[in-house]
């Protein structure tokens, strides 16, 4: 997006903010509203969170401050949030799956559960795909399993525990065996595939340029529904492996926050998510459109997600 269109977009959203019947006029933060991002600087959550904060600031005139609180895929940040008194005007932004995984596996060590927070909304869904180099001698999950059986084993790169479980589930259902190589994030998975050290691996957006250039192909979708950018490719579930992962980027505050504040902040978030400049960032970061499930929908997403994570981890 160039400068002009950005200024137009900003101007337009500012105009809309003025002309539309202003929501929740009665509440505004006394001081800065902080968005704490549960990941370090430079990732997709960070990028989306910073632009979200910027658009919210432009729309509402609030002083929105964005900070990074990395640790445990957001667990450190949500731990801090849960231990605060309510009404501190601090919003946490994280991804559902890493939090749910720790809640399922080490819930007894964590000082919070999903009821510890008031949910504000969601930003986007991450689509998780199993991809392979274009030269790989298979195109679908079934063919990949067959190839693994023929070769004895097959190297697959993963970057988080749920993906390991999806592959273990595949082993259990099909009898094939995989060498699971754990990588530091999607970028390293791509490096391992391109370098030929593994034949396939998981990507949550990093693979997109290579799909476009034809260097890689999608083998299977790992979400509940099919991938938006590859609707012909079957999911793991459709291929006979009953396992899926649905990571959602969401926002929440310390439980017990003033309902007026929740209303005003969630409305501001919703408005920002609808802004075209934000949609563009989301499409750059996760290859999907922004999705806001709203206050109730986000809570439901977490409850359902916890149930699914329990099934996936066999607890």
């Amino acid at each position: 997006m160039n400068l002009k269109s950005k200024i137009f977009a900003l101007g337009a959203s500012a105009l809309m903010a003025f002309s539309a019947p202003v929501l929740a006029e009665d509440w505004a933060p006394d001081g800065p509203l902080t968005i704490q991002i549960g990941f370090g600087a430079g990732g997709s959550t960070d990028t989306m969170g910073r632009v979200l904060g910027k658009v919210m600031k432009d729309n509402t005139g609030w002083n929105v401050v964005v900070e990074n609180k990395p640790g445990g895929g957001g667990v450190a940040m949500f731990t801090g949030l849960s231990q605060m008194p309510p009404n501190r005007n601090i919003v946490g932004m994280g991804v559902s799956i890493p939090v749910l995984v720790q809640l399922v596996n080490r819930g007894d060590q964590l000082p919070f559960d999903i009821d510890s927070f008031d949910y504000l909304g969601t930003v986007a869904k991450a689509e998780l795909a199993l991809v392979a180099s274009k030269d790989a001698p298979f195109d679908t999950l079934e063919e990949m399993v067959a190839h693994a059986k023929e070769q004895g084993t097959l190297a697959v790169a993963t970057m988080a525990p749920p993906q390991v479980l999806v592959m273990k589930q595949t082993e259990a259902k099909t009898g094939a065996s995989f060498n699971l190589v754990t990588a530091d994030g999607g970028a390293e998975v791509m490096k391992l595939i391109l370098g030929g050290q593994v034949l396939a691996g998981f990507g949550s957006g990093e693979q997109y340029p290579y799909l476009e250039s034809g260097d890689m192909k999608v083998i299977a979708g790992a979400n509940q529904s099919r991938l938006s950018y590859a609707p012909d490719v079957k999911t793991f579930t459709e291929s006979g492996v009953p396992a899926y992962v649905d990571p959602v980027f969401f926002l929440a505050m310390t439980g017990g926050t003033d309902p007026e504040a929740i209303k005003a902040i969630s409305a501001a978030i919703d408005e920002a998510i609808k802004a075209p400049e934000f949609a563009e960032i989301v499409r750059n970061a996760v290859k999907g459109d922004p999705i806001n499930m709203g206050v109730e929908g986000t809570k439901q997403m977490m409850v359902d997600g916890l149930a699914n994570a329990k099934v996936l981890f066999g607890k």
Partner: peptide, 18 residues
């Protein structure tokens, strides 16, 4: 990693087609 996120904010997608 910070540069890549700045690129993305400015609509540049590093990779094979860049």
């Amino acid at each position: 990693a910070l540069i890549i996120s700045a690129f993305m904010i400015h609509g540049m997608q590093p990779g094979p087609l860049l």
